[in-house]
Design a protein around this nucleic acid. Structure first.
Lengths: 208, 208
DNA sequence: ACTATAGTTGACCGGTCGGTATATGTCAAT
DNA sequence: ATTGACATATACCGACCGGTCAACTATAGT
């Protein structure tokens, strides 16, 4: 039997929209249903719980992220500009949302990481896995730069971690200031992060 | 007439504890009162609203932060090691909390920045101001390093911004992984961030 | 001892929370 | 035409939400 209802999809879309803009705790099942045009009793036909909906919405959104980042980390874009391009891509994303709604909503995964990491182990693990996947894209890029001699032999895992942490921090500030331009301003700093690890406990003079 | 009750202080302490560990939306006035040993009706004798309590708690916590960071940014610690020392200090803070409770709680201001920036303008402004103050400590450090020739002439405002953004990103990951060691690992990357801005649109080779 | 005020209390408000139970409507394959 | 899965709807649960209020008690300063 074919699916004949898109209520599930509408609920996931509503969850993505509302939880992204507000927060998980602040968005009730009721408002989710209202936005999706679904009666509350019907909600639990499609999802075991509010948490279950979030898990499935997270899956959807992580695929969106993958799709958005695919051209950025594609083989035909030079490795040396991928990370900066990623920052720019995220900048455009945040900016277009601000143009629509007046608000910078930040990174859904970052938002949920801080809201739910200490409260919901299942969500924590999913968000962690998504971040891990992003880090692997960055790490692959770094490895390629080492292969081509554009980067020295550094700890690619730690450096990729640092780049993604910086990205999340930058997005946090963009949300706090409600100013997407900040992402663009700080994007160029990102590449310097990759150079830190092989310098160990060097003083500033040694680097300069 | 002198103050004869510490209920206000107990409520603020409870708010700091509970909101830090859970989130603003998830912690109700009721649970706040239970922890502080105060009846709910009494809560509104001391605070206009739950939001009002958070504002005042934020004030308290920002003073704690200032006190915690004062020795780090003191004149008798060399400017070249202040930023790294700040990371270490925050590492110890997060680690001691994890030893007590089993959880990395992250940065209260970062948590609230992501949870409430789009929802509560008053809180947003307060958190922004606190972040700004931290950035100024970092910026003063950078200026001193330039004065002593340990750093080239860079855009200190943007670099300080980048350092604090990185810090917040690192803390976010520590919370997501529930692993404070991450802060220590990534601390050494911080200094390289300050070197990025005067490199403009340089390629990786130019830096290496 | 009195009194003004600081502090406390419990009952109550309308509304929402996540979740459940159950009856019914819809449609395709047999 | 009947079956059975898909799908929707209504009504309800106890608990909790942030917030209000009038009545009360405890105490410090006189």
């Amino acid at each position: 039997m074919p699916r004949t209802s898109d209520a599930r999809e509408r609920l996931i879309a509503s969850a993505l929209e509302l939880i992204y803009q507000r927060s998980y705790a602040e968005v009730g099942v009721q408002s989710l249903c209202e936005r999706a045009g679904v009666k509350k009793g019907n909600f639990y036909y499609y999802f075991d719980s509010k948490q279950d909906l979030l898990v499935q919405a997270l899956e959807m959104r992580s695929q969106e992220l993958r799709r958005m980042l695919a051209p950025v980390f594609d083989k035909d874009v030079p490795a040396s500009s991928r990370i900066e391009t990623m920052f720019k891509q995220i900048y455009f994303d945040q900016k277009s949302y601000k143009n629509k709604t007046g608000q910078v909503r930040g990174c859904l995964f970052g938002n949920l990481a801080l809201e739910l990491s200490t409260r919901d182990e299942r969500i924590r693990k999913r968000v962690d896995a998504i971040m891990q996947a992003l880090m692997e894209l960055v790490e692959e890029t770094l490895k390629e730069l080492i292969r081509t001699g554009e980067l020295p032999e550094i700890d690619t895992t730690a450096s990729a971690q640092a780049v993604v942490a910086f990205l999340e921090g930058v997005i946090l500030f963009a949300k706090l200031r409600n100013d997407p331009e900040l992402i663009l301003t700080l994007a160029k700093v990102a590449k310097s992060i990759t150079l830190a690890h092989h310098e160990q406990s060097q003083s500033f003079e040694d680097i300069v």
